[in-house]
Design a protein around this nucleic acid. Structure first.
Length: 265
DNA sequence: AACCAACACAACCGCTGCTTT
DNA sequence: TAAAGCAGCGGTTGTGTTGGT
């Protein structure tokens, strides 16, 4: 299932990630954010290319990545979305918080593709009015996608409680510039860094410090700050709020404690 | 028990489009 | 405005696992 580790001509390691590498990446991203994927491995002490780090983080290490079996609701949603969007995995993943485009793509190719083919063949049997491939101009296509995603989002919220994941999907993340989600990281952990502008998130989300929920950049409320941080707690990267401090710096205390202790994954 | 095919999934590759200079 | 750098995306590959014979 995993690739044999190897190195490319630049000495960059390839193949399976080791627990040590994972730890380094998680440590670095959670404390410094993803300010530049190309430079990140150098600073994090990893012999990996930035692309590989980014992929590893988004598809595997990022908090609240949902792993394991897809629910029936998720399967249905993927099938519906794929019928309309085609292989636009990132757009599909956007409607399944916690699922990554890569995971959905794999799931599609391994099990849903056949189901889809069956459905299509059945549909075509009873529908001779079907037209051929229509070429749409870009603007019309975008409109269709927007309305479709809007409907899909409604379905998700109404049908599956698990889909209220606090983290944006990989594609939500990927649609942000690096400075954008550096902002998320630093603000979320109560850590400021000059290199990472928090302006955008503040503009889009109102006053972060008085806002009890995390919002994505379309203004959709995903979770409370504590919900967002819980996965880090479970990983042992963060620690519970200090018993001696019931103030607003609880999670900062946790981060501080984490930085002074060994992180076990 | 051994073999083989199908499945599952992590990871790589290369292209595209956006942002910055 | 053009070029360079970068992140994101989708296609593809490689390999461990599982199930059937």
């Amino acid at each position: 299932m995993v690739r044999t580790p190897s190195c490319d001509k630049n000495g960059m390691k390839k193949g399976t990630w080791t627990p040590e590498e994972d730890k380094k990446l998680v440590d670095y991203v959670t404390t410094h954010g993803c300010w530049n994927w190309r430079q990140l491995p150098k600073h994090a002490g990893l012999s990996r290319c930035g692309k590989s780090c980014r992929l590893r983080w988004i598809n595997y290490l990022r908090p609240n990545v949902r792993r394991g079996n897809f629910s029936q609701e998720e399967d249905e949603l993927i099938l519906n979305l794929h019928q309309s969007l085609g292989n636009r995995w990132s757009a599909i993943a956007r409607q399944l918080p916690g699922r990554t485009d890569n995971e959905i793509k794999n799931h599609w190719h391994s099990s849903l593709k056949n189901r889809s083919t069956n459905i299509k063949s059945k549909a075509s049997e009873g529908n001779n009015l079907k037209t051929g491939n229509r070429k749409k101009d870009k603007a019309n296509e975008e409109l269709d996608i927007d309305s479709l995603l809007e409907n899909a989002s409604q379905n998700i919220l109404e049908s599956t409680p698990i889909l209220t994941s606090p983290m944006p999907s990989s594609s939500t993340i990927s649609s942000l510039s690096h400075s954008d989600y550096s902002g998320i990281n630093y603000k979320s952990f109560g850590v400021e860094d000059e290199a990472c502008s928090t302006q955008l998130i503040e503009e889009k989300s109102g006053d972060f410090w008085t806002e009890p929920f995390l919002q994505d950049f379309e203004g959709n409320v995903h979770c409370t700050t504590d919900d967002f941080l819980m996965p880090f707690l479970e990983l042992g990267i963060l620690y519970p709020p200090s018993p001696i401090d019931d103030g607003e710096n609880d999670w900062l205390y946790g981060l501080h404690m984490a930085q002074t202790n060994e992180v076990h994954l």
